[in-house]
Amino acid sequence: MASSPAVAGDGGLADPALDGERLRLCMEAARLGTWDWQLAEGRIRWSDNIASLLGGVPGGPGDTYEAFLQRVLAEDRSRFAQQVAAALEKPSAFDAEFRVYVPEGGPRWMRARARVLAEQGRAVRMLGVLQDISLEKKAEEESRRATDFQEQLLGIVSHDIRSPLGAIISWARIMAAGGPPPEEQQRTFRRITSAALRIERLTRLLLDFARAQLGGGIILEPRRADMHELLQQVSHQFRVAYADRSLVCEKEGEDTGGMWDPDRLAQVVSNLLENALKYSPPDTPVRLAARARKEHVVLEVHNQGKPVPPELMPQLFEPFRSGPQASRTAKTSYGLGLYIVREIVRAHGGTIEVRSDIEEGTTFTVSLPRLPPVAAELMRRPAPVGPGPKRG
């Protein structure tokens, strides 16, 4: 009897082989592996793709439960083990999420779903699947951050921008109606200037934050700049809005110059100076210093007053974290502002540190290489070739 012809498109494979290939494709697309744990034997049989699912871990996940447990991140191991033990004690299905170590990159998120088979009420076998859910966890985190950003943005617009804008409108109406007495006019101008500068700074912070979050990073335009001159320029602008405060600029060493983006560094100085003024007693000076080092230039901004609480120090440069005070204004200054400061400093290849205690006050220290990597890269690029001479 002649054999039956193969179905067109099946590649000549028999049905069982096709079913197996379909299953492997489904498991690969779903980033899914399987296991079969025979409790009496103490061995776990894994699907062929489990090693790649775990990032090519040498030795795979191991053929015992104890070996696999060592692949689980230490912070999640105890919780995961308790879930497994509970499912075995009273035979039942379980669903667990945890992280595992991989040879390269950060830990991967996994989801384990299993069914326990029992004989006479005693667990004898566990069948389960292991799924890589790292992408889903990343999407959840991005969604959460987007939601948090929207909430914070609404707060900034409704309070931190609307308040100074309302002050500008009110004082503008007063000026249009004839203005305050002559002795009050300069104070009124300073209030309007201060409110306008606040709106401008908040708008710029929001734009930079959006760029940083979207992955574009801080864009720099390096050119020759002098740190001490920059401190003097920024402090002069602040003296208009804070006429009653003492700002002291110091210089150590002769050459405090480098190849930086002066506009971006002005943002750094402005944000640090604004924080120093806000969180220091009004009768104390704020000191700014530019210190020359061999390969670096150091910027310091110091103020007296209450120190930054120790529990906030690890999160001080994260977006939307509050500072010494609990007001919304403090959150935007000690959260978004310092986050942008850190990103600008990092873009220059520099570092930023903070020291804060009740005796010495608070000092932010920025160290910048005189020739940041981005500036060195620009200098290595060949100059553009101009048009050649015209031919007659």
Results as ranks from 00 to 15, higher is better:
1 M>D: 06
3 S>F: 01
6 A>M: 07
7 V>L: 02
10 D>M: 11
12 G>Y: 07
13 L>K: 00
15 D>C: 11
18 L>D: 00
20 G>A: 06
20 G>W: 01
25 L>M: 09
25 L>K: 11
30 A>G: 09
32 L>T: 11
34 T>R: 06
38 Q>C: 15
41 E>C: 13
44 I>A: 02
47 S>L: 12
48 D>A: 12
48 D>F: 04
48 D>V: 08
52 S>Y: 04
62 G>C: 05
63 D>F: 12
66 E>I: 10
67 A>E: 15
74 A>G: 06
80 F>Y: 08
80 F>E: 08
85 A>V: 15
85 A>K: 13
87 A>P: 04
87 A>L: 10
91 P>K: 07
95 D>H: 10
102 V>P: 00
102 V>E: 09
102 V>L: 10
108 R>M: 04
109 W>C: 04
113 R>F: 02
115 R>C: 01
117 L>E: 04
118 A>T: 12
127 L>T: 06
127 L>P: 09
133 I>K: 06
135 L>N: 13
139 A>S: 06
141 E>Q: 14
144 R>Q: 06
144 R>I: 11
145 R>A: 12
146 A>W: 15
153 L>K: 01
153 L>C: 10
153 L>H: 01
155 G>M: 08
159 H>P: 07
163 S>Q: 09
167 A>Q: 15
168 I>S: 02
170 S>Q: 11
171 W>Y: 14
177 A>C: 14
180 P>K: 11
182 P>L: 14
183 E>P: 03
188 T>N: 09
190 R>K: 03
190 R>C: 07
195 A>C: 13
198 R>P: 03
202 L>Q: 04
212 A>F: 01
214 L>P: 04
219 I>R: 08
219 I>N: 02
220 L>G: 04
224 R>E: 15
226 D>W: 01
230 L>S: 00
233 Q>H: 09
234 V>W: 00
234 V>Q: 02
236 H>N: 09
238 F>H: 03
246 S>M: 14
247 L>H: 08
248 V>I: 14
254 E>F: 07
256 T>M: 08
257 G>N: 05
258 G>Y: 08
262 P>E: 09
263 D>V: 07
266 A>M: 04
273 L>I: 00
275 N>S: 12
277 L>V: 08
281 P>V: 05
287 R>K: 14
291 R>A: 11
292 A>D: 02
292 A>E: 10
294 K>M: 08
295 E>K: 11
296 H>I: 02
302 H>R: 11
303 N>A: 08
305 G>Y: 05
314 P>I: 03
318 E>K: 13
320 F>L: 08
322 S>N: 07
327 S>T: 15
328 R>P: 13
330 A>D: 14
330 A>E: 12
330 A>F: 06
331 K>F: 11
332 T>W: 10
334 Y>S: 15
335 G>F: 02
337 G>Y: 01
339 Y>G: 00
343 E>R: 10
345 V>H: 02
346 R>H: 13
347 A>M: 07
351 T>R: 08
364 F>W: 15
366 V>E: 01
366 V>N: 00
368 L>V: 03
371 L>Q: 11
381 R>V: 07
391 R>Q: 15
392 G>H: 12
